[in-house]
């Protein structure tokens, strides 16, 4: 057992939990008890630093905290390869979308500049690329749902099924556009595509916001975990209380806006309002992180020893002096 570093690591690894504060109370006692082991402590400290154990323990602790939040938010368990493949499909769809968007602008410009004899052909080209843009956007959303383990299975299936059926309708329209021969047919198909877009826009937007909301929840929980860590540092009198208050107030705002957005999503509320609430929650989170940076920078100014490498040096020097 690496007495001191491990004791600290264990303490930190449970800092997300309420029982943490109890274990922290006894830090000094624990160190004192360990220090009585005169022959063992110094050697173990030295070894732990040499082996990079301290840094390793910090990494493990950080990883544990990340995993605990992930686990807490897990709504369905997907095979790793399914997640990876869905993410790749998302990246591909994103690339395809950007490429289609470029063609979309070009085709629209060509249509506007075309003379009377070319107008039908240019309109057909534009409608074709409009459909590509539409489908790639839907594919991005579908891939994100397929990679998302924080959305319940039933809801994920419902979203995917809705997107599949929308893509099928749009694809059917594409065939009609390709086969349309007259200007009137083209105009009619354009109208059908527009109405379909208007019909599904609200639902698709709500699905997008659900994905964003679920990703945001992870960041929010991770930041709340940091907030608890800071509260523990506060016990040691290290934290600027005014800045901590600012940080906490932004965190409360971020959580409230997030919850509002989530409730609205679950009650089938307006997608634009959900989007606004999600954005406001993210903005509050950014402000909280800014406050957090200022807090940690201030602590570091007060205590140069906050650099972990310097602490390791102290430990090493202490151990060597004792030999």
């Amino acid at each position: 057992m690496l007495s001191l570093p491990i004791a600290i690591a264990e303490e930190g690894s449970s800092s997300d939990d309420s029982e943490l504060n109890e274990s922290r109370v006894d830090d000094s006692q624990e160190i004192e008890v360990e220090a009585r082991d005169k022959t063992g402590v110094r050697t173990r400290l030295k070894e732990s630093v040499k082996d990079g154990e301290v840094r390793k323990e910090l990494e493990v602790r950080d990883e544990n905290s990340r995993l605990r939040v992930k686990e807490r938010l897990l709504a369905r368990d997907l095979p790793d390869n399914a997640v990876v493949e869905a993410r790749l499909r998302f990246e591909q769809a994103k690339e395809n979308f950007l490429e289609a968007r470029t063609r979309y602008e070009e085709r629209m410009k060509e249509f506007r500049e075309a003379g009377a004899e070319e107008k039908d052909a240019k309109a057909r080209n534009f409608l074709g690329v409009s459909i590509d843009v539409f489908i790639e956007h839907l594919t991005k959303i579908k891939a994100q749902v397929q990679a998302n383990e924080n959305i319940e299975e039933e809801r994920a299936n419902e979203i995917i099924s809705y997107i599949d059926s929308s893509i099928a309708k749009v694809t059917e329209l594409k065939a009609k556009i390709d086969n349309s021969e007259t200007k009137e047919e083209l105009k009619q198909n354009s109208r059908e595509l527009r109405l379909l877009f208007v019909e599904i826009k609200q639902t698709v937007s709500r699905h997008s916001q659900r994905i964003v909301n679920s990703k945001q929840e992870y960041v929010l929980e991770r930041t709340e975990s940091l907030e608890r860590r800071l509260a523990n540092t506060e016990v040691r009198g290290e934290v600027n209380q005014e800045k901590l208050r600012i940080f906490t107030s932004f965190m409360i705002e971020a959580r409230n806006k997030f919850n509002e957005a989530k409730d609205l999503l679950n009650s089938g509320g307006d997608a634009a309002t959900v989007k606004r609430l999600n954005m406001e929650s993210r903005e509050a989170l950014k402000q909280a992180h800014q406050a957090l940076k200022e807090i940690t920078n201030e602590i570091k100014e007060k205590r140069p020893g906050f650099n972990i490498n310097e602490v390791e040096d102290i430990l090493l020097r202490g151990a060597e002096n004792e030999q």
Binding site: L4, P5, I8, A9, G12, D27, S28, I31, E32, A35, V41, R42, V54, L58, R61, D62, S65, R66, Y218, V219, R222, T223, S225, L226, R229, L230, N232, T233, R236, E238, R282, L285, K286, H289, L292, K293, T296, I299, K300, R303, G305, F306, N307, I308, E310, V311, I314, L315, G318
Partner: peptide
């Protein structure tokens, strides 16, 4: 005494260092 001081410094350093590391990571997530 030296060990106690070192221990206290170490605990403070671990807490803050961890917060900084995590904050950077969470900022990236954001």
């Amino acid at each position: 005494l030296a060990l106690l001081i070192t221990g206290v410094l170490f605990i403070a350093a671990c807490g803050s260092q961890e917060a900084v590391v995590q904050d950077n990571e969470v900022s990236q997530d954001l």
